[in-house]
Simulated scan of single mutants.
Amino acid sequence: MLNSINTNPGALLALQNLNATNTELTTTQGRINTGKKVATAKDNGAIWSMAKMQSASSSSLNAVKDSLQRGQSTIDVALAAGDTITELLSKMKEKALAASDTSLNTASFNALKADFESLRDQIQKAADNAKFNGVSLADGSTTRLAFLANSDGGSFTVNAQTIDLDGLSLSAALTFTSAANAQSIIAKMTSALQTATNKLSSLGTSSSGLDTHLTFVGKLQDSLDAGVGNLVDADLAKESAKLQSLQTKQQLGVQALSIANQSPQSILSLFKG
């Protein structure tokens, strides 16, 4: 080997190895600090791009979940109103049946009539107030509502079910003036009650569908997040072990460079007398 004071191949090699170790150490420390093996496009462009796209899809599902939850609330409000309305219809039928008794005196008949009319008015009020965030599926103001179903903008459609007086084929002026008239209203109340229960059943089916789809969206989002983690997250146990190894290697590299730098000094002994 050429003995030269201008060039020290051993030191150059030791410096190259030390620089390589320092680079690996910096990378490992970065992974430990961020918890990611691919934190930027510089680390791995293809994986980083894929992870970003999947993260965007996962994030957009938050809007889908919000929309579906609004749908649930809107239906729940309509169902709550529907429960009240079916109870009112049952009571109206009861009042009509009681008023059909020809043995009633005038005072009792008029009391039943007043109760019947009050219950009738409550039905319309219940339907009119069945709104969530200004939207109703029960008052006839809309025919259907579309909620977000996926990150591509697809929709989950819920058909409205009008359960106000018009939707139940009842008049806002419905009443009875005689026992015979009350008798004729009983069948009408039975029909209205059947119509209401059928419409509520349809809303219940839609609510169940929303629940199922919302659960699916939640699972999908979890799967996407887990997939992104598999792509970019660092194995911290592995990186910790590697850190210990590289720190030891760095110390050895510094010592090797120190030894290599001492080599040219041996040339001085050639010039001693």
Rank of each mutant, 00 (worst) to 15 (best):
M1W: 10
L2N: 11
N8G: 04
L15S: 15
L25V: 06
T26L: 12
Q29P: 03
R31S: 05
I32A: 07
N33R: 15
N33D: 14
T34E: 01
K36T: 01
K37W: 08
T40I: 05
I47W: 01
A56M: 07
V64P: 07
D83M: 05
K93N: 15
K95Q: 14
L97V: 07
A98V: 06
A99F: 03
N105I: 08
N105W: 08
T106D: 15
A107P: 00
D115M: 11
F116K: 09
E117I: 11
R120C: 02
K125T: 15
A126V: 05
A126D: 04
N129D: 12
A130N: 10
F132G: 00
N133V: 07
V135D: 09
S136V: 06
D139Y: 02
R144C: 00
A149W: 02
S155L: 10
F156P: 00
L165P: 10
S171E: 13
L174V: 10
S178K: 11
A180V: 08
N181E: 14
S184P: 11
L193R: 11
T197G: 05
T197R: 15
N198F: 03
K199L: 10
L200H: 03
G204P: 01
S206T: 04
S207K: 15
T212H: 12
S223F: 04
V232G: 01
A234S: 12
L236W: 09
A237R: 15
K238P: 03
A241L: 13
L243E: 05
Q244E: 06
L252F: 12
A256L: 12
A256R: 06
N261P: 03
P264H: 03
P264A: 07
S266L: 13
S266M: 08
S269N: 03
L270W: 08
K272H: 12
